[in-house]
Structures are given as C-alpha cells and as structure tokens.
Amino acid sequence: MNTDMKRRVFLRGSMAAGAVGVAVGAGLLAPQSVMAAWPKAAFDAKSVAEAGKTAMGGTDIVESSDIKIKAPDIAENGAVVPVTVTVKPSMEGVESIAILAASNGQPLVGLFKLGEGAVANVSTRIKMGKTGDVVALVKAGGKLYSNKKNVKVTIGGCGG
C-alpha cells in the first residue's frame, strides 16, 4: 500500500515537468524510409519461429533462462497486458529483443533494437486475443535465444 501511495504521489511531482510536445510535419521525416525499415514480412508472419527468424535473421532458436519475462499470470483485460523483458548481464552482446504473443494471428508485436549503451530491459503493453504464451526472442552475439511465459486471458483484447 505504501509503495502504491508513493508512486501515485511521485506522479503528482512529475506533472509540472511534462515533456514539451513538438509536432513534426509529416514531410520532415520521409515515411517511405520508415516503411522500408519496418519489417513487414516479420509482422505478417503467422508463427513465432517464422516471425522471429524473419525479424532478427537467425536460424536456430535456443531457450534461455537468462531471459526474464514479467507479465501477469492472468491478464485483467487482453487489450492491455503489461510486459517487461529483461536479459541477465550474463548474456552478452544483446542486439535486439522481440516481444511476441504466440496465440495472436500475427504473433510479432514489437521489435526493440538496442542502440549504444542500451540495457537489455524493455517494457510495453500489448494486446492478446486469447490465452497463450508471451514469447521474448533475444538476438545476442548473432544468435537467437528465447523464453516464454503463459498469460491467461479472460477478456480478449482484439475485438470491438
């Protein structure tokens, strides 16, 4: 309870220093270049393995307990499932992390490419249509590693 109160109080303190939003004209960033970078084939892929290999360019996927997935055992609402993926420092040379929802028609949800100095620790919130595994794929030292965590979904997050 105490930590919760603090967090919500902390939120109050942070309000004054909100980010300054700057609208960027659509013309400034050529959407085509982004389109080219966005791995459409990987996002269209129907299976975890196919999506992972297409997105990250590996061949074999090795299971690794060095990858930690924090996600709820039971999702309150499949529309908003909080997921955090952390890779233990023992796995060196992490280049990218992919988050997939195995039971979604198109499993690949997000691909996170680590820039200079980035720590292998990312959080986001994803949609899950039904109960299934949240899979994390990690590319490190040119190889692919994975781990998964089952999340029970009682209210699907993809419908109207």
Partner: peptide
C-alpha cells in the same frame, strides 16, 4: 539509444 518497430498489437495509447 533505442529503435523500436511495432505492430497494431501494441495497446492503445502505447507505453514504452
């Protein structure tokens, strides 16, 4: 520091 590519499978009003 980070480049991410997403599908529509990321929740509405996305968090990163």
């Amino acid at each position: 520091r980070m480049t991410t590519h997403w599908s529509g499978g990321v929740s509405k009003n996305p968090y990163l």
